[in-house]
Design a protein around this nucleic acid. Structure first.
Length: 247
RNA sequence: GAAAAGGUA
């Protein structure tokens, strides 16, 4: 069964999702039962290639067989539904998984929060955050990034900064994506200087928090939009000095 | 020993 999981995942990663589904059929013909690894690989593969109908059909067949999905398989469906703009349906799936005794984790909540933010429903995203905390699920740096990014896109930089401080206060180390998200929020609100200050802070942190090309691009964009081309050139030079490649 | 989530136009 591990063999089938590895093969199906390999096919999916190469964009051969239909072949992955064929493997599922043939393993059943041989009397093997597909497990969580096979199902999550196929569900995410089908959603990623835009075949949400296929994913839902597979899900239905899986449930009809009496298969009990675990947290990863449920989270994969929730993420897929959010990616096609259906966070409300994803929320229903979350309720189902809880009633089946399956606990949502940071993956589950970050997908759902992002789905609500993308629908312009920041209120519901924040409700999910509260739900997560109530359920004793500790947010990781990805959950914080989703929340900060969503708040900043809603023009709520102040709230984003509060969350940022909260993250630091709880000892959660912001990684490069979390830093980039808050820097983006600062730049878009016109506080490019604040963004540059955070960049300097990043340079003093560990390897997980070193700025990358995206971080620099965010700052270049902020500087150029505010007619600060010369500072952008200085920044480009320091970027190159650090051995970071522009794209 | 295999599967799922976040940042730049």
């Amino acid at each position: 069964d591990v063999t089938y999981g590895i093969i199906v995942n390999g096919l999916v990663k190469q964009g051969k999702v239909a072949d992955g589904v064929r493997v599922l059929v043939s393993m059943e013909e041989r009397g093997h039962h597909p497990n969580e690894f096979v199902y999550s690989a196929l569900v995410s593969g089908l959603f990623n290639e835009g075949n949400s109908e296929g994913a839902m059909k597979l899900w239905q067949e899986m449930m009809e067989k009496g298969f009990k999905p675990n947290t990863v398989v449920y989270s994969t469906l929730i993420d897929g539904l959010c990616r096609i703009g259906k966070p409300e349906e994803a929320k229903k799936v979350l309720s189902e998984m809880v009633s089946e005794g399956c606990m949502p984790n940071a993956f589950t909540y970050s997908s759902l929060m992002r789905g609500f933010f993308e629908k312009g429903n920041g209120e519901k995203a924040i409700l999910e955050w509260k739900e997560m905390e109530k359920n004793g699920c500790t947010p990781n740096e990805i959950c914080y990034s989703v929340l900060i990014h969503g708040l900043c896109l809603d023009g709520k930089l102040k709230e984003g900064l509060m969350v940022w401080k909260h993250m630091l206060g709880r000892g959660c180390k912001p990684d490069v994506v979390a830093y980039s998200s808050i820097i983006h929020g600062l730049c878009n609100a016109g506080f490019v200087e604040g963004g540059l200050r955070l960049l300097n802070e990043m340079l003093c942190q560990g390897s997980e928090s070193q700025p990358d090309t995206v971080t620099y691009n965010i700052l270049f964009n902020g500087l150029c939009k505010h007619n600060n081309i010369s500072r952008a050139i200085d920044l480009l030079n320091s970027m190159l000095d650090r051995g970071c490649d522009p794209d």
